[in-house]
Design a protein around this nucleic acid. Structure first.
Lengths: 114, 114
DNA sequence: TCGGAACATCGACGGATGTCGATGTCTCGA
DNA sequence: TCGAGACATCGACATCCGTCGATGTTCCGA
């Protein structure tokens, strides 16, 4: 809950992944494996300053505010997003380390044609 | 079903992802978002020739043959694995294009600290 | 021809997940 | 002090997902 394992994994290809490694990364992928959450991360990452207010995010979807809040919680719990309250608003920002952890999985993956 | 969209996406960061793009990649991530399937892909990719027989994969897990078969089907349906029957055995191989499609998502993601 | 081995499929079960409306909590301005 | 807005939480619901045992299907060797 508190500190999901970040920056953990060797690439998918090469040597086989250990069960422990798999258990560590799978939650990150699971958190990203949803169209809405994928767009949320993308929207936040593409926003000025790398952060976005929930109110702006709500407007980008045809979903209830409760649902967006839920998806943000999932991303936050997975360690993919940072959360900061500023006055009435709450801002979410992408955690580069978390994305890097996932990216490392596919790092050389694309570079091994056969 | 037949041809899941591969090699589709711009990186997560940069410009926000379109709903259509998100709907395309999410299934790939969802297929990978499981410890068992993650290890399956890793095992296959790390095998000689980039392919592995189901019989060998079964031995690597404390799971029923039916369960492994199910996971392989999920990965195959997502377009991540190729399937080839040779005699009594079935060999699965990683589709580099599919992994590349996912990798492209995180390509520059790790390179944007803030 | 027959039996067994390698996989796939089926049906079922419990648990997780996405979505919603309703309600709670916090903060600020009037 | 009070009310409204921003966001989180709750409870409920339908659906999906991982796993299993049992059963098919296909192929090869005896």
């Amino acid at each position: 809950m508190s500190e999901p394992g970040l920056a953990c994994c060797t690439p998918l290809t090469g040597t086989p992944m250990s069960p422990e490694q798999a258990e560590q990364v799978a939650p990150l992928l699971k958190a990203l494996a949803d169209p809405v959450r994928l767009r949320l991360v993308s929207l936040i990452a593409a926003s000025a300053g790398g952060e976005a207010c929930v109110c702006d995010l709500n407007d980008a979807f045809d979903l209830t505010q409760a649902t967006i809040s839920h998806h943000l919680k999932v991303l936050h719990s997975a360690g993919l997003l940072d959360r900061e309250k500023r006055g009435v608003w709450v801002y979410y920002a992408v955690r580069p380390a978390a994305l890097s952890a996932v990216a490392s999985l596919f790092d050389t993956a694309a570079l091994t044609p056969a």
